[in-house]
Design a protein around this nucleic acid. Sequence first.
DNA 1: TATGAACCTTCCAGCGACTGTAAGGTCAAG
DNA 2: CTTGACCTTACAGTCGCTGGAAGGTTCATA
Lengths: 131, 131
Amino acid sequence: MNIGDASDQSGLPSKTIRYYEDIGLIRPDRATNGYRDYAAADVHKLRFLHRARGLGFSVEECRQLLALYDDKSRASGDVRELTVAKLAEIDRKIRELTQLRQTLEHLVHSCHGTERPDCPILEELSDGAAP
Amino acid sequence: MNIGDASDQSGLPSKTIRYYEDIGLIRPDRATNGYRDYAAADVHKLRFLHRARGLGFSVEECRQLLALYDDKSRASGDVRELTVAKLAEIDRKIRELTQLRQTLEHLVHSCHGTERPDCPILEELSDGAAP
DNA sequence: TATGAACCTTCCAGCGACTGTAAGGTCAAG
DNA sequence: CTTGACCTTACAGTCGCTGGAAGGTTCATA
């Protein structure tokens, strides 16, 4: 599959896909004409990268997460430890998003401008789990 | 409060806090000696910025979100529309994180290296809600 | 078969969001 | 009154893309 199709199926611009190859996140085959040739597994990784980056994971973290899937001997304690750490991080992000959501809901439904500049929402907003 | 304390309380490096001032996200007072002077509300905003950036919102999106809190006439249809859009975005992020979490859990508990390189987890992982 | 659109390639430059370094001013403690 | 921990600005560098130029490939249509 050419890069354009990989782009369509992953949601990532071709530019970004080439960049991810430059930094070694994916390694597509090459056709005889020099075009990159993406397998289904590559597209899955690209879709994953698209989502994980949008959720605030750095490229290095994405590299680690991909390594978890690629790891040939998943019994390794290191891998398990890393996975557990990532789970905790994901839980934290979910908590923070949930709190942010509640705050916005509150803002829409019950906070009508009169209670600022000391709006309690700002406090509530910033009182989430420590980073 | 000096920038060092604002940094400690928000979790953001001083450098980043100054940068946020450069691009107009916050506007702290200045003491007579020229030092920046942060009020509690500034720190709340900084904590918010720290969290929202870590959750994958761009600086421009953060600016919009802060505007929602700062907006003097929250009745505006534009503001409400933006808030609703942000709520949908947050819901999407929560769904994606939940799915990512399930995948990692699955990986830890039941996928032991033998089923790759066609591990169904990679497929599962990349089958989330469209971006 | 040829021409043009729509792909693909590499390379290099620029931008968004920081991050590090340098050179210097301020302040509280000893 | 100096030492060290703070603060200031200014400028350069990095990370993660993103756009543009210059050119090769493929394919439908004239």
